[in-house]
Design a protein around this nucleic acid. Structure first.
Lengths: 251, 251
DNA sequence: CGGTATTTTGATTTAGCTCAACAGACGTGG
DNA sequence: CCACGTCTGTTGAGCTAAATCAAAATACCG
């Protein structure tokens, strides 16, 4: 249970992780928690782990840019990473926010393709990476891993199509409500304000996820707060009334 | 080169395929053309083919409904199939249009999941299907096939995210222009009208692909026709000036 | 030739964008 | 610890692309 004296001070836990937290032990442990490596034995896991190298990023730091040559597949070990499509006119699309255990980067590229999005550490983050060639070798060696990766990718495709549906059929308010629900599900922790989304989450980011403008996102959040559905401040959001939020997302 | 006397009569070739066209020979030949089976030898292909059964659908016929229990993976052998998200208010989202060699249906479901979209034969179509369990066995037996399926799925995820970008950043006209380009690329054949999209393609379908209304799609198509960019009639579209269409899709 | 489905076109409405100004929070350095 | 500058968020006022509503016109089908 997180508590704060001053209502408006950010209630987020700032995990001031330093580079030294990414020890081999932590990395191995986290790698075993990655969904598609769960089928591996400790022995196999240790073998696979050798192929990975680790890196640490400060919050806000870019991990790779769109159109960079895609050579690595990465796994979030600690912190959170966001995937962004940046457009020419400075309008961003926030595609996904990843938490430990999720992978990103290149998959299909047999070699010389480029990343289709930019990856940025949202909080301080520890990330493992493996060369594509090595990863393909792992997939060949362990069909169960390949299967799991396929399942996850197919799942992401389904979510992406669901998002298209929401963009074309739902008004901004319902889209935001849906996004808040998903974020609370994924990053939420109980707090005195309700289910607190453990991420620095600005209006602009919400807007970029919902495909709307920061102003519209702000207005909608104000309305939600007035109605007692959320409690929110600068860079943070907590769900005060999940029931009513679900209703607001209702179609 | 397709020619027609009357300008307004549909210039589409109506492939009046009958059930008997889906012979074993044709099926085997087509299966070999499927991207993810290309790595297999004739021997292996014949073996895999045994697991498939075939079905024929009339144009407009539904192959499966959203929320049906997902048990089969299917491959288009002849004709075209469209994948649609139907919403409560009758607003459809056209997710994809598939041509021979492409697969659809369930992938990840290890068992008791449901289809996330509805599949409908757009023209008369011949479709092969394989039980999920059998397909997983094929993937396990032939890692190269699993790899190819993963590549294709990752590619579809990228397209889907690209579509999200277009929906949130581009005006309807540019989205339609982009869609016409993609369709012409995939289904186009040269004709007296220019590159003719070999599909029955209504304004409503275009609208459902672009996430706009049929009226808006109609207005945009009229404008394109006035400018000499396309030639179009009831249920058909041909690209008269690919250059200018590309400009219209420009961002 | 009548009936139906598709497309076009017009008129009106509106959600949400943009522009603009302001206010609150945060951090930093004095 | 306070003053100041810089972000982030709030709020208001118009504006616009596109939705919706409503006919009419055109193409296809038997």
């Amino acid at each position: 249970m997180i508590t704060m004296a001053n209502k408006r001070t950010t209630p987020l836990e700032h995990s001031n992780i330093k580079g030294h937290h990414c020890t081999v032990d932590v990395r191995l442990e986290k790698l075993g928690m990655v969904p598609f490596f769960q089928s591996l034995s400790d022995e196999e896991l240790r073998e696979v782990h050798k192929k990975f190298s680790s890196a640490h990023y400060a919050g806000g730091e870019t991990i790779y840019f769109r159109d960079d040559k895609a050579t690595l597949l990465r796994v979030v070990v600690h912190g959170s990473v966001k995937l962004v499509h940046q457009t020419l006119e400075g309008k961003d699309i926030l595609l996904d926010m990843l938490k430990p255990g999720e992978f990103f980067g290149s998959l299909s590229a047999l070699g010389h393709e480029a990343y289709t999005e930019t990856a940025e550490a949202q909080t301080a983050a520890c990330v493992l990476s493996i060369g594509l060639r090595d990863f393909r070798a792992v997939l060949n060696a362990y069909p169960s891993v390949a299967m799991a990766v396929l399942d996850i990718t197919a799942g992401r495709l389904a979510s992406s199509q669901e998002k298209i549906r929401q963009l074309t059929t739902l008004p901004a308010e319902k889209r935001i409500a849906g996004i808040l629900r998903a974020l609370a599900e994924k990053f939420g922790e109980e707090s005195e304000y309700g289910r607190l989304i453990q991420l620095p989450l600005s209006r602009k980011e919400l807007a970029d996820m919902a495909g709307t403008s920061a102003e519209t996102a702000s207005r909608i959040m104000s309305r939600f707060q007035q109605n007692g559905i959320v409690k929110t401040g600068r860079q943070w959001v907590a769900i005060a009334d999940g029931r009513r939020l679900a209703e607001a997302a209702e179609e």
